[in-house]
């Protein structure tokens, strides 16, 4: 197991290098003058441009530029954004908010999605099953900005159940409830449907028949023997989804005014803030790869037939 993890971590190195290089190349291939707008309404003086170019090695060929950048990243220095603030510091602030939101969305979609899926799958064709199928179809078909604004208007503004915004550097957990529900809604629908079909299939399996023949309570037949097997694909899905959630959510963050990673990257791209974008994406690539590893480890732990050696 330890060997497997080390091997997987080593495999990440080329992936990280290649993906960050690609992002670096793309950002710096964007048209426009990187010093534009740095000196107010007038063009920058030659001395400033020279200093700027030297600082970011802009006169060197792209691979060399990237080399300098990579060297700094390895030392923990993601550079400064166009406002002169260290990217690493800004990211860690934003990332705390995004991580809180992601964990809350994951709990929401996991708990309710699995519960709805189990209830629907146990009585296929019944009332709950139809309710789950129709409501999840609705959630899947409606775009997230509609869900988001509708939730904000009704639950936040009109009925005042939840705070309508979650602004600031450290929004309260309560103010993140509504955004987390909006963010997790689509995945919740997929989880419910996945769980439903898994339960409906596994409940007919031979080992569930054996569990009944062993004289186990119906609760144990479902809760232990059927559930464990049905959860395997769902947990995998949730693992990947968590990786995606940690990448930030531009739309949801935008609606609720959340200072998360998604908005940071979006603004960075808009402002041609290359250093900020590359720094943020590099961090996300690493997070996503680590989540992938975690999912694979979890998969091996849940299903003994999968060997991770």
């Amino acid at each position: 197991m330890g060997k497997y993890i080390v091997r997987r971590l080593l495999q990440m190195i080329p992936v990280v290098i290649l993906s960050t290089f690609l992002i670096y190349a793309m950002v710096f291939a964007m048209p426009g003058d990187p010093t534009a707008g740095k000196c107010g309404e007038r063009p920058c003086p030659a001395a400033y441009i020279e200093k700027f170019n030297a600082k970011y090695h802009l006169d060197e060929p792209l691979p060399v530029q990237y080399g300098y950048y990579a060297k700094n990243v390895v030392q923990g220095d993601l550079g400064e954004n166009q406002y002169g603030r260290p990217v690493a510091e800004e990211l860690s602030e934003r990332f705390t908010v995004t991580a809180k939101l992601a964990v809350m969305a994951l709990i929401f979609e996991g708990v309710i999605g699995i519960l709805a899926g189990v209830l629907a799958g146990l009585r296929k064709g019944g009332f709950i099953d139809n309710l789950v199928l129709i409501s999840t179809l609705f959630v899947i078909s409606v775009p997230i900005f509609v869900t988001g604004f509708a939730a904000q208007y009704f639950l936040g503004l009109k009925w005042e159940i939840f705070p309508a915004l979650a602004t600031g550097k450290d929004p309260s957990l309560f103010s993140l409830v509504l955004p987390a529900m909006v963010l997790g809604s689509t995945s919740l629908a997929y989880i419910a449907r996945l769980m439903r079909s898994n339960i409906a299939e596994n409940i007919k399996s031979d080992y569930v028949r054996t569990a009944k023949a062993k004289g186990l309570t119906p609760r144990r037949v479902v809760g232990v023997h059927t559930l464990r097997n049905s959860l395997i694909p769902v947990v995998t899905f949730m693992g990947y989804d968590f990786g995606a959630l940690l990448g930030g959510a531009i739309v949801t963050e935008g609606i609720f005014g959340i200072n998360g990673v998604g908005g940071y990257i979006f603004k960075g791209i808009q402002n041609r803030d290359g250093i900020a974008v590359v720094g943020a994406v590099t961090a996300l690539v690493i997070v996503y790869l680590l989540m992938n590893l975690l999912v694979d480890l979890l998969y091996g732990a849940l299903d003994p037939r999968i060997s991770n050696d």
């Binding site: 080992y207 054996t210 023949a213 004289g215 309570t217 464990r228 395997i232 849940l302």
Partner: peptide, 23 residues
């Protein structure tokens, strides 16, 4: 239910699919 196991018990054809794969 309480008779299943202590009184009447059953074995099945395909032991691979009849045993729970994850325990």
């Amino acid at each position: 239910r309480l008779t299943r196991g202590p009184e009447i018990s059953m074995i099945f054809q395909d032991a691979l699919s009849s045993l729970n794969p994850v325990f």
